[in-house]
Amino acid sequence: MAESATTTGHIASPALAVQPNKQSARQTTGSTIAFADEMIIRRNIVARLVQRDPSALEEMYDRMARRAFGLAYRILDDGPAAEDIVQDAFAWVWDNSQKLDSERGTVDGLLLTLVHRRAVDALRARSRRDALPDSSVSSNAGQDALDLVDEVQRNLDADAINRAMDQLSPEQSEVIDLAYFGGMTHAEICEKTSLPLGTVKSRLRLALNGLRNSFGLGGSS
């Protein structure tokens, strides 16, 4: 019950700029229980991963593989390559499972971050662009960010996250697509779009701060 109460508080948080649609609003009570159950299940998976229980990875696969594969496929547009990326990411989670924090809510955000990172590396290698160093997963801010991802996912489903993405202007969506799904640096986006460097930087900044606000992760800066 404590789980339900905690999650209800998050659901009702006024900080969330992306509001549930009317259908979701009518289902708030059921959704709250479902979210609480979901978090219990996710935590149970992490705890079993730490204990090196293969069935935990299998359960995680059943829940996450379609999203992970969809992400890798969108970046690479190549089924076999996307398979390798997803396999590599799940293998990383398993190989490092004893280092996971069993108090942490889930590893879903970590898995998708790994898939994104590896898929972008593969994409850049394929197009003979220099590899980019990883700056996001290992830092302290990266760890805190994964907690925030869990927090947001507790409150917003994929549809709500997509609605937040839809609130971006076409110009902002374009630069986010090129950077996140195309793995392009500032200079590469400039070359692709013929935009000045300052415009690319400001559009990325506005876009990401817009998403941050929509996800209820603090004010823009």
Binding site: A145, V152, Q153, Y180, L211
Partner: peptide, 10 residues
């Protein structure tokens, strides 16, 4: 970082 990671969720 969390906002960027959440793009994947969509």
């Amino acid at each position: 970082t969390a906002s960027a990671a959440l793009i994947a969720s969509g």
